[in-house]
Amino acid sequence: MSTATFLFVLLFVFFIAFMIYSAILLYHWFRFAMSNLVATAAAFSYMGLGFVLLFIMLTMATSLL
């Protein structure tokens, strides 16, 4: 397996893990004891930063092709 393939597999695994974990956190933020404003701000910052990092990972993996 080439390095690029390995990184794409890793990226896929982390993308799935991030999405599942996001669902769990968003559930907690919107379900329990929070105002919608705080929950929305947390969701935007968390998902925003997460997708930026995933995009960097995608770019780096793609550059190895």
């Binding site: 890793l10 974990y21 990092l53 995933l54 960097i56 990972m57 780096m60 993996a61 550059s63 190895l64």
Partner: peptide
Amino acid sequence: IATIIFFIATWMLIILMVIYTVWT
């Protein structure tokens, strides 16, 4: 360099998830 940056981003993604869990 691309591989190193990939793993730095991976590390930061993991820590990001931990930080938001602690805050939650």
